[in-house]
């Protein structure tokens, strides 16, 4: 009940912020502008339209996740509203979990709005509904949950500017870290190999959740890949939240 109360309050705070709507608006606007871009290019216009549209949704949902995630936890500490919560019979663990779930709900709503509007747009243009959009939704949502958990981790001990930088850097690393997976097989030196393994498993491999290409090209995605990616996401989020709880428990106000 306490986690639920904190989560709903976090959600309320996010949706009462005008920036939230502004980012959703831009997400929808740029996904619509994909129609314009597709008209200017040669090739399968529907594929280009989907590609640009999904990329826009991806970009703006990541921006919402990073900035909402960082601000909401840091603001609690900076504005001392955390005293209000933690002076009640509330475990610090519940505070972090409540914040995470509240942000997850916020992202769920934002993503549902953006993807629903874009799906209707595609449906009106092509006359067909692509059910794989639901898979795209699940994969992108899992990626956003990883970003939220990372932003909560950083904002539990750092300033918003540093947390933003750390989270953005980790997001970018997360989309190139898969190269270490290829790289580690080519290394012979055990120390170098260990280092490559360490780096690969330490940072989130966010490319696991990038199915835009497959969706646009109508490539099939195996159940094994779907399940392993989701299991990886759940494991990574759990690990980051446990570290965040540990840090937050030690924090003094």
């Amino acid at each position: 009940m306490k986690i639920r109360a904190i989560a709903l309050n976090t959600f309320k705070e996010a949706v009462r912020n005008k920036i939230f709507y502004l980012l959703i608006f831009f997400g929808v606007f740029f996904s619509f502008s994909s129609k314009l871009i597709s008209m200017l290019t040669i090739g399968d216009t529907l594929k280009i339209l989907k590609d640009v549209g999904f990329a826009s949704i991806n970009l703006f949902s990541v921006l919402i996740a990073i900035f909402t995630g960082i601000n909401l936890v840091y603001k609690e500490i900076e504005k001392k509203t955390v005293y209000f919560i933690l002076s009640k019979p509330v475990e610090r663990r519940d505070f972090i979990l409540g914040k995470f779930l509240g942000l997850a709900l916020t992202m769920f709503v934002a993503l549902t709005i953006m993807i629903s509007v874009f799906s209707i747009f595609i449906l009106l243009l092509s006359g067909t509904f692509d059910p794989f959009i639901l898979l795209y939704f699940i994969f992108l949502f899992t990626e956003l949950l990883i970003i939220i958990s990372i932003s909560i981790l950083f904002s539990s001990f750092s300033t918003p500017i540093l947390s933003s930088i750390f989270t953005i850097v980790l997001y970018l690393i997360g989309h190139v870290i898969w190269t270490f997976n290829e790289f580690k097989y080519k290394l012979i030196n055990p120390i170098e190999k260990f280092f490559a393994y360490f780096i690969y498993y330490l940072f989130p491999n966010l490319e696991k959740f990038n199915i835009k290409g497959a969706l646009v090209m109508n490539d099939p995605i195996s159940i094994k890949i779907i399940l392993s990616s989701l299991a990886y996401g759940i494991f990574y989020i759990s690990a980051i939240l446990l570290i965040s709880i540990h840090i937050f428990k030690r924090r003094e106000f």
């Binding site: 309320k12 705070e13 001392k80 509203t81 209000f84 002076s87 509330v90 475990e91």
Partner: peptide, 19 residues
């Protein structure tokens, strides 16, 4: 944390959620 169930606390310069 449960020990705080019997406490009510008013902080100095109270900060609450203004929304």
């Amino acid at each position: 944390a449960s020990d705080r169930a019997s406490i009510g606390f008013l902080p100095e310069s109270p900060y609450y959620y203004d929304y």
